[in-house]
Design a protein around this nucleic acid. Structure first.
Lengths: 178, 178
DNA sequence: TTTGACATGTAAAGCGTTACATGATTGT
DNA sequence: ACAATCATGTAACGCTTTACATGTCAAA
């Protein structure tokens, strides 16, 4: 499916970027639903250049070594815009070792079993708090014409997923305490 | 992390199984949160045998070729029970091409953008219906002492996640229609 | 002087999917 | 005869993570 390719094309479509810029975007903004290390980004940029989707100009940096500023070619932009409209299937349920443990948890003693859920709830509450902090950066709910509308929607998705996960864990705890 | 290893040990811990049995379990019961093809299962069984976690006896089948019935060794059981109590971090948010598209969706025209969400909602509604059908197989909410308690909890998790996803998509559609 | 941010790359190992490969038995 | 189910295996490819590797510049 080469989704990393489109993640990169999409980012560069917003504005020209270096590999390092992409790395930082993957760490911050996109992190909740896509990520990649620099060891994956640089080879992919090389490949996309060879395939003619992107080109770069060398930049002398005042601080640090030279960098390559990438932008989309016409072919690259066309490819990206077509991908946006592709009719793709929804993803398979992602693999989750925690749910696997829950599935097998009848082999644990009662106390450990309850702790498993309590620990897990704490971790998800922390992640939720972190996401809610990011939400506060929005002074208002963006309207669909704004640049940050997409950012808002995916942040909402991450928050709602965490809330739902916590609700599930609490249901489990309730059933365990009966 | 070798989670496949523990998925297999956990299944065999419930009762001795062949590779083919495991394959079927992965396709049915566990499918909502773990899966593996036979091409991954058979080599892993070989590896686990070599490592001393499992052993097998040959079975002549009345129908079809011979099969290997695997069971846990003492070391394998110990390993599995320890894994159950491991303090593991929650998984990173799984990668999701749909959310990536949503993030970039300001580059789409309004109609296509709305269609993207409507199509996606339909697909998730279908999956939810399928899960709810599985829920109907439970005549009652199992208590924590029952064998199927774990099955019930992970099914609930899948259902609640689908409901939350659909709720998010509906929020998106609302904001797009404003 | 040493830590951290900037900046880019390669290599190796692990995990997962798709495809290749074989062969028996049962039901239509 | 043909398809489906049972039953096991290997090979090739692709994606991701972790580790290896190098080098500059600014600030503490």
């Amino acid at each position: 499916m080469r989704t990393l390719k489109y993640a990169i094309l999409g980012m560069i479509h917003q504005k020209p970027m270096t590999g390092y810029d992409l790395m930082q975007e993957f760490e911050s903004t996109l992190n909740e639903f896509w990520s990649a290390n620099h060891s994956q980004i640089y080879p992919e940029l090389k490949k996309l250049t060879k395939e003619g989707s992107i080109t770069y100009i060398l930049q002398q940096s005042d601080k640090g070594p030279d960098s390559k500023l990438y932008s989309l070619t016409e072919a690259g932009e066309k490819d990206f815009l077509e991908w946006l409209n592709d009719d793709e299937d929804i993803i398979k349920t992602p693999k989750d070792p925690f749910r696997l443990r829950v599935f097998f948890s009848k082999s644990m003693n009662e106390e450990d079993r309850l702790d498993l859920f309590m620990d897990h709830r704490l971790k998800h509450r922390k992640r939720l708090k972190h996401l809610q902090k990011q939400l506060k950066k929005f002074t208002h709910v963006p309207i669909k014409e704004e640049e940050v509308f997409g950012d808002y929607l995916v942040l909402m998705s991450a928050i709602m997923r965490e809330e739902s996960t916590i609700a599930w864990i609490e249901k489990c705890i309730e059933l365990l305490k009966e």
